[in-house]
């Protein structure tokens, strides 16, 4: 698939309503190619909902979004060919071995048979799962499962990766290792769109959006965001101040 001109992800006044409840409220943002873009916010902020819309899994109520130049509402098939997605809940097949999961996802992503061994070997190596090919996926530890899920999502070499809280429930060391992988992906030119609610992870992103009650209440590089809240401010301070400001506004 030819890369399209423009941003990797373009979101314009995106709205998602579930009945009368507004889960995503007029979100507008751009993600440049090769960028690690963070999506930070408390539970229920609308991070997953936004990501699912961007992956073509959910239809937006209003507004528009383009991923890799394709409209998510009207061209979901093309969007799906251009992305890798790791959902918040672990979702590989537990009763298949590591290798069988990789083989299955190679198949559904339409990877040609002759390049599969290469791609799968790469995914295994990247995930640090060499030697575990025949291990039943259910027996893997949490951090390993997450890395396998990432490995499965990159078999077709997607230009854009959506990772929804990939490190939740994983110990700090495994988390650090996972971020090393994200960096490696970005260095090889992949755009990474990652959500989290760990403050320290926000610092790892090139740019990030703070999300609260469906709105983006702050957007910028970690340095920009901290600078705008006075010297010595931490990411946590930025977060709390932004939410307080937002609450005051809406009152």
């Amino acid at each position: 698939m030819q890369p399209r001109n423009g941003s990797a992800v373009e979101v314009r006044s995106l709205v998602k309503r579930f009945n009368s409840f507004v889960a995503v409220d007029r979100v507008t943002l751009d993600v440049a190619r090769g960028e690690i873009f963070g999506f930070l916010g408390p539970n229920g902020a609308g991070k997953s909902t936004t990501i699912r819309i961007l992956c073509g899994l959910l239809a937006p109520t209003e507004g528009s979004a383009r991923v890799h130049g394709f409209n998510v509402a009207t061209q979901p098939e093309l969007v799906k060919k251009s992305i890798g997605y790791m959902s918040q809940k672990f979702s590989l097949y537990d009763d298949l071995t590591v290798e069988e999961n990789l083989e299955f996802f190679s198949g559904v992503y339409g990877v040609p048979r002759n390049v599969r061994p290469l791609r799968q070997a790469y995914a295994l190596k990247m995930a640090g799962l060499e030697g575990e090919e025949h291990t039943m996926t259910r027996l893997l530890a949490g951090g390993w499962k997450q890395r396998l899920a990432l490995g499965c999502a990159i078999l077709h070499q997607p230009p854009i990766l959506f990772l929804d809280e990939p490190t939740s429930g994983v110990d700090p060391i495994a988390r650090r290792q996972f971020w090393d992988l994200i960096y490696a992906m970005a260095e090889s030119g992949t755009t990474v769109f990652v959500s989290t609610h760990y403050m320290e992870e926000a610092e790892y992103c090139h740019r990030l959006a703070l999300m609260y009650k469906g709105r983006t209440i702050a957007l910028g590089t970690p340095a920009e965001l901290k600078a705008s809240h006075g010297p010595g401010a931490t990411m946590n301070d930025v977060f709390i101040a932004s939410i307080e400001h937002e609450e005051a506004e809406s009152r």
Binding site: K81, K89, S91, F105, V108, Y109
Partner: peptide, 13 residues
């Protein structure tokens, strides 16, 4: 129930 449908739906299947 296992959430694997979510993953499948994100692929071109």
């Amino acid at each position: 129930e296992n959430g694997t449908m979510e993953q499948l739906l994100s692929t071109p299947v």
